[in-house]
């Protein structure tokens, strides 16, 4: 199946001359949830804005279900829903009215039942006649989500949907995302909450300084890059690793109370048995043994710092 969103050699230089996207290539499969991780200023919002038509690309192309987003913008855009990062809403408008407006703007005929369903799902139904300015920040974000869902998009962009929102909304969000995925909607979300990507994404893309550093299946990524650490806690602190144990994989904890052994989970032999018998042979007494799996966060920090290295 051809990708639902296909971004090719996309560059964006702002009027200031600053190049926010430096040749992005990205294919997004229909029905998947892709999390775009990246530090502030990486170009996540710029990428989304360019796909959605809010900014114009300097060069490169974007296709949505085969429709060029410039040449054939009507077909492309009518498939896309966008929940922007900034809360942009008219303060004096009423909730239901603004959601209804979004649906009309996308050329869809009125569907009160659908609007009601969306508002209920987002716990906004009681607030349907409230003015936006009367709502809390989290509620306003829900309104933005309702507006984007009102026109039944096939591809949904969520730009930092859970930045600065309460736990409850984050849970609701994840539920909605799961529901949409069940309906076959493709979801691209940007975040710098790694747990979020870890919790809901199928694939993870890492972007930094306007370049995509990697896009990979989440589980594969974690097992490929996931290393485990074994911490061998000693009953007596030592000042140096005994000569018989010295290896690249082993280091001493700063306070000398433990040896830390790093190993690869996917290799045939982890070397743990050997290590433990060597430790005993060296006359060290074990107090406890702990293992740790490196998280997506560690992977991400590693990648981005590598990306920034000259």
């Amino acid at each position: 199946m051809p990708p639902i969103v296909e971004i090719t050699a996309l560059r964006k230089a702002y009027a200031s001359g600053f190049e926010a996207l430096k040749g992005v290539d990205l294919s997004i499969e229909e029905g998947e949830i892709l999390a775009l991780l990246g530090p502030n200023g990486a170009g996540k919002t710029t990428l989304i804005s360019t796909v959605c038509g809010i900014t114009t690309a300097t060069s490169g192309t974007v296709r949505v279900a085969g429709h060029d987003t410039v040449e054939d913008f009507r077909a492309a855009r009518s498939m896309i829903g966008l929940v922007p990062q900034e809360i942009n809403l008219e303060p004096f408008e009423r909730v239901k009215n603004t959601v209804r407006f979004s649906r009309g703007l996308f050329g869809k005929s009125p569907n009160p039942a659908l609007i009601e369903k969306i508002l209920r799902q987002l716990s906004l139904w009681d607030k349907r006649d409230s003015q936006i300015r009367e709502l809390s920040g989290g509620m306003k974000r829900r309104v933005l989500i309702a507006k984007a869902l009102s026109h039944e998009p096939r591809v949904l962009f969520l730009d930092e949907p859970t930045a600065g929102v309460d736990v409850e909304l984050r849970r609701d969000m994840w539920e909605i995302v799961a529901d949409l995925k069940r309906d076959g909607v493709t979801i691209i979300l940007t975040t710098h909450y790694i747990e979020e990507a870890e919790a809901i994404a199928d694939r993870i893309g890492v972007i930094a300084a306007g370049e995509i550093l990697l896009v990979e299946d989440k589980d594969k990524l974690m097992s490929r890059m996931g290393k485990k650490e074994l911490e061998v806690q000693l009953s007596e602190p030592i000042s140096d690793i005994p000569a018989s144990l010295v290896s690249d994989a082993l280091r001493l904890k700063a306070d000398g109370t433990a040896l830390i052994y790093t190993y690869d989970t996917k290799s045939e032999r982890t070397g743990i048995t050997q290590l433990l018998s060597d430790v005993a042979a060296a006359g060290l007494v074990l107090r406890d043994v702990v293992t740790r799996q490196s998280s997506l966060e560690d992977i991400f920090v590693d990648l981005v710092s590598e990306g920034e290295a000259p």
């Binding site: 009507r74 077909a75 942009n88 008219e90 303060p91 050329g107």
Partner: peptide, 18 residues
């Protein structure tokens, strides 16, 4: 000017309208 000022113009720009 108002949508431009408060930012709601994003919706017009990303909608399938000419």
């Amino acid at each position: 000017y108002f949508p431009k000022f408060i930012g709601t113009i994003f919706e017009l720009l990303s909608a399938p309208v000419n």
